[in-house]
Amino acid sequence: MAISKKEVEHVAWLARLFLTEEEKERFTKQLSQILDHAGKIAKLDTSKVPPTSHVLPLKNVFRGDKTRFSLPREEVLSNAPKKEDGSFLVPKII
């Protein structure tokens, strides 16, 4: 096993996923298989390969500091489950 059940629980919590016991078992196994597979790459000598964060041969894509119109507030709030005084209302944080 490349990953423990405890680690799966931790990663699930970080992503706010709530898993059943059966799912935890299943994902521990599946994630381990994925990690094992990826582990093969770790065996290769990559010391001369620069880390690739992007496959596109692009750099320095910028925009000028110009303003554009913003959305009307009604539209912004139209998906909000709850709102008050033009703001999104969220439940108690702590």
């Binding site: 110009k66 554009r68 913003s70 959305l71 507030r73 912004v76 005084d85 033009g86």
Partner: peptide
Amino acid sequence: ESKMFCGCSARTFGEKPNTLTC
């Protein structure tokens, strides 16, 4: 003048809530 990654105004202090978004 504008935000980090979009064209909304970055001068937001004192503006009405949620009027400078995209």
